[in-house]
Amino acid sequence: MTHFEVIVQPRPGVRDPQADAISAAMHDSGYDGCSAQSVGRFLLLSVDEADSEQAAAKARAVCEGMLVNPLLETYVLRSAAKPAASAVYREGQP
């Protein structure tokens, strides 16, 4: 099993309403000097493939074929040693 972190973000220049609203709320709440630059999505992806090259190819295929809308988004694919802690968090067991 090979693991990847997928980070999907709005394309540079594409309007990012979430970042705008979060920036406004941070300012309203007194966190001066802070602003949200980009709000994206994070996915921990596991590929059932031992060969890292082939696993990466599969990961790219799923990103470009499904997870990312190239009209609006770009993505970063990073290999991950093992699932991050958040991925094994189970509801009711903080």
Binding site: V14, R15, D16, D20, A21
Partner: peptide, 10 residues
């Protein structure tokens, strides 16, 4: 040019 993105909050 970018796809127009709606922002219902704004």
């Amino acid at each position: 040019s970018h796809i127009q993105v709606g922002d219902p909050f704004a």
